[in-house]
Amino acid sequence: MNAPQKDRYQPKPLLPKDKAGDRPLFMVMAILAFLATLTLLAVKTSYQMSARWGTDLENTMTVQIKPDVNMDTEQSVEIAHSILQKFSSVERIEKIPEANSRALLEPWLGTADLPADLPLPILLDITLKPGEAIDKQKLGAAFTQAGLRADIDDHGRWRKELRRSTRTARTLALLALFLVVVAVISAVIFAVRAGVVRQKRVIDVLHQVGADMNYTARLFSLRFALSGLKAGAVGAFGALLVLWVLTMVSSIGSSGLLLPLLGVTLSDLYFALAIPVLIALLSGISARRTIRATLLKKLYP
C-alpha cells in the first residue's frame, strides 16, 4: 500500500463527519430554530397588525346625518360634504350606500323587506390625512349652524379598547418570544454539551498528545457553530416554507379585512436569517466553554 499522495494529501477531520449520533443534536437545533422563527415572525406580525388597526381607526371617522322632514337626503349630503371639505385634514368623504345602511339594521329588524320610505340616517365615512385630527366640536357646530342634525363618531371609544387589547397582545407575544429564546439557549447549550461529551475520546487523545486548550476549543467551537448554522438554516427556512404554504391556503377566499393576510416578505427573510446566526453563535460559544471547562479540569487535576 502506498503513502498518501504528497500533493493531494489532506488529513481527515479530527471530528468525524455525519456521525449518526449527531443527528439528534441536529434535529433538536433545527426544531428550535423552526419554533423560534415562527415565534419571531408571529411577534412581528402582531406588531404590524396592531399598528394597522390603530392607524385605520385613528384616520377615520363616521358622520351620521339624521333624517329631517324639511330637507331631502341629497341636499343634506351636499351640505355636509361642503362643510367637511372646508376642513383641511379631511382627505376623502364617502357616502355609505343606503343598501349597506339597511344591512346594518338587519340584526335588529331581521331580513324582512323594510318599507321603502322608512327614513334612515345617512352615513358618511370620512378618511383623514395621515397623522392629522379634526376639531369635533367645531365640525358639530358647523353642522348645527347649517341645520343638520348630525352625530360625529371619531372611534375614540374603540381606539382605547384597541390600544388596551394590542398592548396585551404585544406583551404576550414578547413574553412568548422571551420564553422561546430562553428555551433555545438552554436546549442548545444542553445539546452541545452532550455532543461534546460524545467526543470524549478525541478530547482525551488531543490532550494526551499535547494539544493546546485553544486548539481543541477552536476545533469544537467551529464544528458545533457550523452544525448550528446548518440546523438553524434548515429550521428557519422550514418555518418560512410553512408560513408560505399557510399564506397560499389562507389567501383563498379571505378578504384580509380583519386579519392581515399572512405573507413572507423580504424583511421576514432577514428576521429568519438572524435565527441560524444566533444558534451558530450559541453553539460555538457553548462548545468552547464546555471544552475549556472540561480541559481545565483535565489539564492537571
Binding site: H207, Q208, L295
Partner: peptide
C-alpha cells in the same frame, strides 16, 4: 494548567488501551 500541554509535547505516552482515534 495552560502551561501543561507544552510539557506534554516533550513526552510520548503509550497507554494500555492505545488511545487511537
Amino acid at each position: 494548567g495552560p502551561a501543561i500541554p507544552s510539557l506534554k509535547r516533550r513526552m510520548g505516552v503509550v497507554l494500555q488501551d492505545f488511545s487511537l482515534i
